[in-house]
Each structure stands twice: as C-alpha cells, then as structure tokens.
Simulated scan of single mutants.
Amino acid sequence: MTRSLFVACLLVGAAMAPAAAAAQQGAPTSPSVSTEGRASAKVAPDVAWITVTAEARAQRTADAQRQNAAAIDAVKSSLRQAGVADEAMKTLSYSVEPQMQYTDGKSKVIGYIARHSISVRVDDLARIGALIDVAGGSGATSISDIRYDVKARADIERRLLTEAVQDGMRRANAMASGAGKEVLTIWRIEESRFSTVPQPMYKVAMARAEAATEISPNEIEIQVQVALTVLLK
C-alpha cells in the first residue's frame, strides 16, 4: 500500500468513526426531537405508617437491652389490644450504643442506650391519633415519620403514564410542526416518577377530659414524568 493510499484510508476511517459510534450507542439516524411529558393526580391517602421508638438506658449493656425489650413489648401489646395486627408492626431499626459523658475535653462511658424502632401500618386513618396516644401511653419514647400512601398507587401510576406519554406526544407534534416536519415514529421512551407526600398536621383536641392527638392528613400528589424521542419525516 502506498503512503498516499494509506493516508486516504486513515481519513476515511476517521470520518466514519463518529457515525459508527453513534450507531453503537443507538443514536437516531434521522432527524429527531426530544421532549418530556407529565401527568399528575391528587388523591386522598388511605394507608399510613407511623414510626414508634422505645428507648432504655442502663449502666450495663444487658440491662439496657432487657429494659428496652420490655418497653417495646409493652408498646406492641397495647397496640395489639387496640386492634393493630402483628403483621402490621415491623422492626425498622435496633441499636445499642454507649452513653458518653464529656468533661474538660475528656470522654467516658457512663452507660448504654438501647433503641428499638418499629413501623406501624394504619389502615383506618381516622385512628392515627388514637394509636399515637396508645403508643405514647404505653412506653414509647418517640413517635415520628408519619408516612401516607394509597393502596391503588400502581393503578394510578399506570393511568398517569398513559397521560404523560400523550402529553409528550402533543409537545413533540408541536415541535415538529414548528420545524415544518411531521412525527414519523417514537424512537425511545423513558420513565421517571415521584410523588409529593404531605406533612401531617398535628393539633390537640380538648373535647374530652384528656387531650387527644388529632392528625389531619392532606392529599398526596402523584406525579409521573416521561422523556421521549421521536423521529421526524
């Protein structure tokens, strides 16, 4: 092979490299536009989870663990008596750690802290406040992270996916029309989703002799987003 022919081959190969790379990466080979489609729905929650924690402190690890086990068992027993099924109470975390005291820049262990957190599923949202009071009155040291959801989330998301793709196609058709083109076909669709979960509203109702915790959940907004690329003609 002569030197001039060798150089020519190199130049042709360099020119073809980007096209080959694009083909390997699955890039569209005809004019295309990329856009997004969105859809959302506000729904009332019909299930909730509460995080309930029991904590115990003692000078010895074994004592802290034993006291903590008794405390969380008492909480679960009270919730069970209030109608919460065993399968609705699941352990989230368990830990035993030293309790430190800091004096003049020095630290020493003065005891141990045992914590056990459980997730409590509540199917009747009207009972959330009452169950919080039950847990608090039976030895829980912390009640937090009330999380809401809907049992039919999967069905709602499937409906929203259809609406999001339709929204994306309307955008793609508008973009193609503005460029004097028409949509030939969909080349790629990718899904992403997220939902905005409301923070519960706490207030104390004084209608009874003892104050009761009242929880007022807001609606959940489920949002779905898709990214799509269409080929033009």
Rank of each mutant, 00 (worst) to 15 (best):
A135K: 03
A15S: 09
Y202N: 07
Q99K: 15
R147W: 06
T229C: 12
S95G: 10
A207Q: 07
D124Q: 11
P18Q: 08
R80T: 10
K76F: 13
V43P: 06
Q65K: 15
L131R: 01
T213R: 02
R170M: 06
E219V: 14
V183M: 04
E163H: 13
E219N: 14
P217N: 05
L92P: 04
M1Y: 03
S195W: 10
R66H: 15
P200S: 03
I128S: 00
V47H: 03
D46G: 10
T213G: 02
V165P: 03
Q67H: 07
A114D: 08
Q99A: 15
A23V: 06
S93D: 09
L131D: 01
S77D: 10
K108T: 12
M206R: 12
S142T: 04
A85M: 02
A69R: 13
A44K: 09
R208H: 06
N68Q: 06
A41P: 00
E219M: 11
A135G: 00
R121Q: 11
S177C: 01
T51P: 08
A82F: 01
D46V: 09
K90M: 13
Q166A: 11
S195I: 08
M175P: 11
A8L: 14
R115P: 11
G129P: 00
E163W: 10
K90D: 11
I189P: 07
A209M: 11
R147A: 07
I118C: 04
A54E: 09
D63P: 04
V165F: 05
Q59K: 14
S34F: 11
V183C: 02
A23C: 01
A17F: 12
D155I: 05
E219T: 13
R57N: 12
I132R: 01
G168D: 10
L231C: 08
V183E: 02
K42M: 12
T51Q: 13
P18N: 06
V109P: 03
A15I: 14
T162S: 13
T213A: 01
A85R: 05
V226M: 07
R193H: 14
